[in-house]
């Protein structure tokens, strides 16, 4: 059970990295082609939300501690 949770936690980290890398690539492409400030801001918001949720674990703020 613990090994499964551990593997899932590492997997989430890798998934998050891939999502952020893809979004960064899209952001760069938007920047050098159509240069839409609104689109880049939206991409930035999505990236920030992914980091806050998956890396910063904001949900722990209202979670009961199980340790």
């Amino acid at each position: 059970m613990n090994a499964e949770k551990k593997a899932a936690a590492y997997r989430l980290g890798v998934t998050t990295l891939i999502i952020l890398a893809v979004l960064t690539a899209v952001e760069y492409a938007v920047g050098v082609t159509i240069n839409s400030a609104v689109l880049m801001f939206i991409i930035g918001l999505i990236k920030a939300a992914v980091i806050v949720q998956n890396f910063m674990h904001i949900a722990r703020l209202w979670r009961e501690e199980s340790h």
Partner: peptide, 27 residues
């Protein structure tokens, strides 16, 4: 460890907005 991680990710979040603002948006 948790506090250090949150702080470091926060630095990353700031750059998420600063990078396009400095390098990509505008002429």
């Amino acid at each position: 460890v948790e506090a250090c991680a949150i702080y470091w990710h926060y630095v990353d979040v700031v750059w998420v907005f600063y990078y396009p603002a400095l390098y990509l948006i505008g002429t």
